[in-house]
């Protein structure tokens, strides 16, 4: 058992080189690398919400939950509708019971009865994933399980997500959550499985008032792209530098 330090080091180095060379045959591709091929470079999916048309019926939320198999009665949802009531005293009252799934049938907001004559203005704001150009959620995913497709939609690989929740924390819009069954991060995808086949997203199809529309920003003839380019539209929380791609008509300073 007499062995000099030099011998030991030599053996260790030879052993580790041997192991490295043979392990090098294997290469792990992250889902982000693999899926980079997905999507059409000539398309940039964008969303247009006309808040002046929304009546808060909640059909979009219902349709979304069913289409995307998000359990109906659990309090998480890929899209939701918020109600804003600004009273004459300047306060804004905001709520979204069940994400607005069942419409807004109660005049009470956060348990407070608001009289009609006290209201200055009231409106609804649908929310969904902003499919940001510079998504904070993709940046922080430690394993590359969430990625941006070439046509601008951010998706989650349910088979690779470790469920750390960092993306949920990083999203300034609160659109992400843990799927109650799959136990991984979950979010709105603009119904990627539908739009890539030429169908409309479930919420767009379900909206009876045309408050929600999907378009391709890279197509000059696209009606949605034209509205975004020629009319006055706003986005949510642009101060975070995420470059959100859901555009709003009739956004108000009270909208959170």
């Amino acid at each position: 058992m007499s062995q000099t330090r030099r011998d030991l080091l030599k053996k260790v180095i030879i052993g580790s080189i041997g192991a490295t060379v043979s392990l090098d045959l294997f290469r792990f591709l992250s889902p982000a690398q693999l899926q980079a091929a997905i999507g059409d470079q000539a398309v940039r999916w964008v969303f247009l919400v006309d808040t002046t048309k929304c009546v808060g019926c909640g059909l979009c939320v219902k349709a979304c939950k069913k289409e995307n198999e998000v359990p109906y009665d659990v309090p998480v949802t890929r899209t939701w509708v918020e109600r804003y009531v600004v009273t004459k005293d300047g306060r804004s009252h905001i709520d979204t019971p069940n994400g607005g799934r069942d419409g807004f049938v109660d005049k009470k907001i956060q348990g407070e009865e608001i009289r009609d004559q006290d209201i200055n203005k009231a409106f609804f704001v649908p929310k969904l994933c902003n499919q940001c150009e510079n998504p904070a959620c993709v940046q922080v995913c430690p394993v590359g399980a969430t990625y941006q497709t070439k046509d601008g939609v951010t998706l989650v690989d349910r088979k690779w997500c470790i469920g750390c929740g960092y993306c949920i924390m990083a999203c300034p819009y609160g659109v992400r959550f843990f799927h109650p069954i799959h136990k991984v991060a979950e979010k709105c995808t603009f119904c990627y499985h539908r739009i890539s086949k030429g169908l409309k997203p479930a919420c767009v199809q379900a909206c009876p008032f045309g408050a929600r529309q999907l378009g391709n920003l890279k197509n000059p003839d696209d009606p949605v792209a034209q509205i975004i380019k020629t009319q006055r539209v706003g986005v949510l929380k642009d101060e975070y530098g995420t470059k959100p791609q859901v555009f709003y008509i009739g956004l108000d300073t009270n909208v959170r």
Binding site: F28, A32, V140, P142, V143, W160, I162, G163, Y166, V184
Partner: peptide, 17 residues
């Protein structure tokens, strides 16, 4: 939420995170 996948961090580290 997926503790068995914790190793993925070593397999495909996404260094912007």
């Amino acid at each position: 939420q997926q503790p068995l996948r914790g190793f993925n961090v070593l397999f495909t580290p996404h260094f912007t995170s």
